[in-house]
Write a protein that binds this DNA or RNA. Structure first.
Lengths: 324, 324
DNA sequence: GTGAAAGCGCTAACAC
DNA sequence: GTGTTAGCGCTTTCAC
């Protein structure tokens, strides 16, 4: 593996010259540049990123932390982040915290070890104290980590109202809401709040049932769906995440409950999951790609010392489907 | 940010001692170790990974290259790889090639720049010549890259036969197969071969239609599904990837074609997509988690100089569902 | 057992 | 404009 010194020797110039020619497009005379390029080609020289990193004290890498990537919401998100970061010149280090003991600690430490220039934190965290003293660039994705950590998320108040309006057009009387864990306060949790306000103003009964913390699998929602139909025989509307509502649809069909005649369903997230089944779900869609783009741009700004706002909020949209 | 030199000073020992104490569990006297630990705590010292990387000439990072992660198959795969790599002490650099001009080049170069210790290549490649001269550790996931590059994949011959048997139990006469692009030869493509052999031996007519190269979205399969029903009015069985077959199911239901009475469907891959809809699809499931685990173990072996076999093949299973 | 010093490969400030 | 050289922070060999 050729090093810069070899190139310098081959080109008959000094190491410094080679470095400058390689990193600064308008350094040196054409003749010198030519010689250096030739030597690079001949020796098939490729600079060592490790050495550059140490020298420049940066890695051009951003850590993306999510609970899991085997979930349509996070899959879309990670795809969007990777793409945006790539075009900004950054690499993506993927970290999934679910299934791993205490992985959050480890990933935060990776940040401190300067393995990454910054991180985008999309995983739930029970212990937000971890983030208090952090000096490194960090952005929270739909999470409250610390008052001084910038956050990007959907306007869930609007989301909640969109969902409410969808149900209100169909004269529902008893709506069950499936929420994530109540243990941790997230922006996403707030759509229930906005939703409830509207529903109660219209005299509609609502109940909330919760999934366990950090549950992003497909089994628990199915169990919960069964429980909902067992416990609330008069339910005529359900609001919850894509996965939860898909589970309800599945169970409802199995039980012979007609959708949307007897039961209205609105999915919150609006990932591809709601669009590629037999029935397209009515859904409030989070602008995942745009959120990803903003998060990527912002983390890069912060890395470059250009911190501005502490919060970026993008509006969701309603996708009309066949279930409400 | 405290450095090793500061720790040494604080502890009243030399830099070398600190390094040794930190990296070798049984180096030094308890007293010395104690002093060093205390200094580390006091200064909140965290070693710089960049410096270690340069010094040790490795990054403990593996690049995972896939077309996209916003697709259930690759999402599960990436999740599995990240998890396995994590437990082997490696970090995961995510690279998605779809949507990016010529990203394969860039990622291969990242490998050469020693940004990653090795890569697991799961993306289609039209230009396999890129891989000919590569000296760095690399493993192909369900792809033929070069004769000397190890490969891990499902036993697609078995997969093809499993699918065939599923159809044969139901007396089909005309089966349409949806395949990926014919432009690039992949192990996965071979299940069609095995499938056809069995079907033809039983006198069943088969037709193959193809998706474009590198198509992993959800739109094209829908168009193709429409086309299949238009072109082959007597089709009574369809075999294809999860996404393709889901699309067919969707279109079939819309057209009033009864599944499974009039049309049998078998999905190849068996991701979660086939299990969480209203109808569970009958599917040939690739052992994604196991494949991921093997791929992770093997790339680490190769990084550590322990290359053994050139190919690892794991068997798929049939998941019986409601569509065949 | 411990400390000094020579790298690891590259960048950029600073002389010439 | 070009070359020399001192870092970047850590690891480890090699004397003591």
């Amino acid at each position: 593996m050729a090093k810069i010194r070899d190139v310098a020797q081959e080109a008959g110039v000094s190491v410094g010259t080679v470095s400058m020619v390689l990193n600064h497009p308008d350094y040196g005379s054409p003749a010198i540049r030519q010689k250096v390029q030739a030597a690079v080609e001949k020796l098939q020289y490729v600079p060592s990123e490790m050495a550059r990193n140490l020298s420049l004290k940066r890695t051009m890498t951003v850590g993306v932390i999510v609970p899991t990537v085997a979930h349509p919401f996070f899959a879309e998100l990670v795809e969007g982040l990777e793409e945006s970061l790539y075009h900004l010149g950054y690499k993506t280090m993927l970290c999934c915290t679910q299934q791993k003991e205490n992985a959050e600690h480890v990933f935060i430490e990776m940040l401190q070890r300067q393995n990454m220039d910054g991180i985008i934190m999309g995983a739930h965290s029970l212990d937000t104290s971890l983030y208090q003293g952090l000096k490194q660039p960090i952005i929270a994705f739909d999470r409250y980590l610390s008052p001084d950590i910038p956050i990007v998320h959907t306007d869930h108040m609007v989301g909640g109202r969109l969902a409410a309006e969808a149900f209100l057009q169909h004269d529902c009387h008893h709506i069950v809401e499936i929420s994530g864990s109540q243990m941790v306060k997230t922006p996403a949790g707030e759509y229930h709040q906005a939703f409830n306000e509207v529903m109660h103003a219209h005299g509609v009964q609502t109940d909330i049932v919760s999934l366990p913390w950090n549950s992003f699998g497909f089994e628990e929602p199915l169990l919960l769906a069964e429980k909902i139909f067992d416990d609330f025989s008069d339910v005529d509307g359900i609001l919850g995440s894509d996965v939860s509502v898909m589970a309800c649809l599945q169970v409802a069909v199995r039980r012979g409950i007609k959708v949307p005649e007897q039961l209205k369903l609105v999915a919150y997230d609006g990932t591809i999951l709601t669009q590629n089944g037999i029935r397209k779900l009515t859904a409030v869609r989070q602008p995942i790609d745009e959120l990803a783009k903003v998060a990527a741009q912002k983390i890069v700004s912060i890395i470059n010392g250009k911190q501005d706002d502490l919060s970026w909020v993008l509006p969701p949209t309603l996708i009309s489907g066949e279930t409400c």
